[in-house]
Amino acid sequence: MIAVVQRVSRSYVEVDGEIVGKIGKGLNILLGIEKGDSEKEIRKLVDKIVNLRIFEDNNGKMNLSVIDIKGEALVISQFTLAGNVKKGRRPSFDNAESPDKAKGLYERFVLEMEKYIPVQTGIFAADMKVFIENDGPVTFIIDSKAL
């Protein structure tokens, strides 16, 4: 499971010109599900993300988590994170989980995140337009296999 975690001032997602998810200060999370991912990866990844100290304290130090600032998360499914660009010029998505399995894991990830902070989402497998107002910018790529 791969997550691109961005600290944002605000973020929203549109489908067919309609806003389907919108947050203020918090995290924009692009989530890619790979073959072999399970509940174990979800718990590890969520724990890492919600406790990651990437928000500034009163001294300007990155010392606060999204929980500490009472922030929100916008979680967007993005199968292209499982893409492999090692060979040739066209990405291979052989490592991406099948849509049926990926959707279930994506939904479990969202439910686990909601235990800690308010969460908004896009629409799984839809053509989405994601608007991100980066704060910093501060961006991390987290692979659950490396945790």
Rank of each mutant, 00 (worst) to 15 (best):
I2Y: 05
V5Y: 03
Q6V: 08
Q6G: 04
R7I: 12
V8D: 02
S9Y: 09
R10H: 13
Y12M: 03
V13M: 07
E14F: 04
V15L: 11
D16M: 09
G17P: 06
E18M: 13
E18W: 07
E18H: 12
K22H: 15
K22T: 12
I23N: 00
N28Y: 08
I33V: 15
E34H: 07
K35Y: 02
G36E: 02
D37C: 01
E39R: 14
K40F: 11
I42M: 03
R43T: 15
R43L: 13
L45S: 09
V46A: 10
D47K: 14
K48I: 06
I49A: 00
I49Q: 03
N51F: 04
L52M: 14
R53D: 08
I54N: 00
I54D: 04
E56A: 13
D57A: 05
N58T: 14
N59I: 03
G60T: 12
M62N: 12
S65K: 06
S65W: 06
V66C: 00
I67C: 08
D68C: 06
I69C: 00
I69G: 03
K70M: 00
L74I: 12
V75A: 06
V75F: 07
I76F: 06
S77K: 06
S77Y: 05
Q78P: 02
T80Q: 09
G83K: 05
N84Y: 01
V85E: 08
V85Q: 08
V85R: 12
K86T: 13
K87H: 11
R89S: 13
R90D: 01
F93D: 06
N95S: 10
A96F: 02
A96S: 07
K101C: 01
A102T: 08
L105R: 08
L105G: 07
Y106W: 12
E107L: 14
F109W: 05
F109N: 03
L111H: 11
M113K: 07
M113A: 10
E114V: 04
P118S: 11
V119S: 02
Q120P: 01
Q120L: 06
G122Q: 09
I123D: 03
A126Q: 07
K129W: 03
P137T: 13
P137D: 10
V138C: 04
V138M: 01
T139K: 05
K145I: 00
L147C: 01
L147H: 03
L147M: 11
